[in-house]
Design a protein around this nucleic acid. Sequence first.
DNA 1: TTCAATTTTGTAATGATTACAATTTTATTA
DNA 2: TAATAAAATTGTAATCATTACAAAATTGAA
Lengths: 138, 138
Amino acid sequence: MDYSNEKLINYLKEHNIKPSTIRMKVLNYLFMNKTHPTVDDIYKSLKEEIPTLSKTSIYNTLDLFLEKGIVKVLSLQEKELRYDIDTNLHAHFKCEKCGKLYDFPISPNFFNDDHLDGFIINDRDIHLYGICKECNDK
Amino acid sequence: MDYSNEKLINYLKEHNIKPSTIRMKVLNYLFMNKTHPTVDDIYKSLKEEIPTLSKTSIYNTLDLFLEKGIVKVLSLQEKELRYDIDTNLHAHFKCEKCGKLYDFPISPNFFNDDHLDGFIINDRDIHLYGICKECNDK
DNA sequence: TTCAATTTTGTAATGATTACAATTTTATTA
DNA sequence: TAATAAAATTGTAATCATTACAAAATTGAA
C-alpha cells in the first residue's frame, strides 16, 4: 500500500525539500522498496506510471535527497550505486550467490578506537560479502 | 629502495603467479607505495620507466593479483577503484578534506553478531569518512 | 631454431554518471 | 486572469573508468 500524498509531502517538507510529483514518487518508491535500489531500478519502475520520466530526474532527485540527508548512497563492489532510505547506523551484507543485500545492526561505539582519536567520523560504510544463511543451508 | 628482482619473483611464485616484467614492476610499486593507488597512479608512474606500457596491462595485472589474492580492491565513495597490497584485516578512514587514506586496525571478532549466524563472511569493507586529526588540528 | 603458449598492446565498446541547454511546470505578482 | 519569474523536468551529448578483444610481441619448451 503506497504512502498517502499527505504523508509524502509532510516528510519532504520536514526535510526542507519542496514537494513535486517526481520527488513524491521516488520517496514513495524508496519507502515501499527497502531493497537498496539502483537508479535504474527506480527509473524502470516509475517509468510505467510516468511515461515521460527522464533518468536525469531520478539522478537529480536522489542528489537532492542526499544533500538533504534523507537517503544514503551505497558504494558496494559493483558498478551501480544503490540508495538507502534508512539513514540510521547499520551495516550491509551482500550475498555473493543470490545477490541479496541484508541489513544488520551495529553498535554506535563500534569505532571507539585509539587510532581514531582526534578524527571526526561523518560517515561509515560497513559492507560484508559472503554467502547468506539461506544460500548456505541449501 | 626498490625490492630486489629475486624477492619480487619469489613473492609472485609463492602465490602461483608467473613472473613477468610488468608484474614485477607493479608488485614493486605496490610494496613501495602503500597509498592505495588507483590504476592511473600505477600506470603514470610505471609509464616513465616502461614507455610502451599499456593501461590494459595494469588492469590485467591487478585482476590477476586479485584472483591470486595478493591485493584487495577498495570501492570507496569515489569514481576510481583503489588497490591495497595489505590483505590483512584492517579498516580505512578517508579524510574528506585532504583526501588522505588512513589504515587502522580492527578486531577480527568485530562481527560476532547474532544476526549473521549461519552467514559465511568472505570479505569486509569498513570505510569511514570524515576529517582527519591533522586537518582537524589546523 | 621453431612453434605454441602466454603476455602485452592498442583500439574500440560499454555503461553509469554528469553537464547543460531547452522545455515544461509551478508559483508569484500585477 | 494574464504575465512573468523561478524551479523542475527533459533530452541529448559528453565524460571517463572499466572491459572486450584481436593483433603483436615475448617467452619457453621441444
